[in-house]
Amino acid sequence: MFANFIEYGSFLSIFCAEYASVMAVRIANDVRKDPYLMHTPGLIRHPLFTIVVILAIPLSIWQAVYVGLFDGFWAGVLAWLILQVGGSLVMSFALSIIPAFAGRYALLALLIIPAIAIAYVLSIHSSLSWLGYLS
């Protein structure tokens, strides 16, 4: 079912997209829970970081579109379900076992920026190559 994606797609793109979308939802949820922004890092409170979170939210759906482009609609839907459930569980577990230190949350939030860039660039490049627009 995922033969074309495995051969022509980018797993790094899917991993980065899942990381960015899960962290963006987590950051948005934490900001919502902390209306006075006293318990979130200053980086998260910065207005420009809101743009980063907004750029990461569509990656949740883009994963399904990306896989579906290679293997069809139902493969995209199945991949989206697997990635949302599995990725959220894995990310929650990974974030819970990372030792707590003062800048952990800010460091993980900063990693969203390159993850977004990698996810969009690799997925768009391999999609255009698959469609024959790039040689």
Rank of each mutant, 00 (worst) to 15 (best):
V67D: 03
L89H: 03
I54G: 08
L89R: 04
S123N: 01
I82G: 01
G72T: 07
V25H: 13
S127G: 02
V85Y: 03
F49L: 06
L131E: 04
V77S: 04
W62M: 08
L110Q: 06
L110C: 09
H125S: 09
A79N: 00
V121L: 12
S129M: 09
L134N: 00
D30V: 12
D71R: 08
V22N: 12
P41C: 12
P35I: 10
V77I: 11
P58Q: 07
Y120V: 02
Y36G: 00
S60E: 10
M1P: 13
L83H: 02
I54N: 14
S88P: 05
W74M: 14
C16F: 06
P114T: 04
D34V: 02
L131S: 05
A102E: 15
I82T: 06
F70N: 01
P35F: 12
A75C: 15
L128C: 03
G132H: 09
A3V: 13
L128H: 01
S88M: 08
F73E: 06
V121I: 11
I82P: 02
L55S: 09
F5I: 05
I113C: 01
E7T: 15
S126N: 05
L122P: 02
D71P: 04
I113Q: 06
L89K: 08
V77R: 02
G72K: 01
W80N: 05
A94N: 08
W80T: 06
L134Y: 13
L107W: 06
S13H: 06
L37I: 14
A100I: 15
F49P: 01
V52K: 05
A20W: 13
V67Q: 05
I112E: 08
L95K: 08
L111W: 04
L128N: 03
S60P: 00
L107K: 06
L111I: 03
L55C: 12
A20P: 13
P58D: 09
A20C: 10
F70V: 05
N4L: 14
V90A: 14
D71N: 14
I113K: 00
V31L: 14
V52Y: 03
L78Q: 08
M38R: 12
L59T: 09
A56D: 02
A28S: 14
R45P: 11
A20V: 10
A20K: 10
A100T: 15
E7C: 08
D71Q: 09
A115Q: 03
A102Y: 13
I27A: 14
I44M: 15
I98S: 07
S92C: 07
L134K: 02
L122I: 00
M38A: 14
M38G: 14
A64Q: 02
Q84F: 01
A94L: 13
L95M: 11
A100C: 12
N29C: 11
F101V: 02
S135P: 12
A79P: 00
L107R: 04
C16H: 10
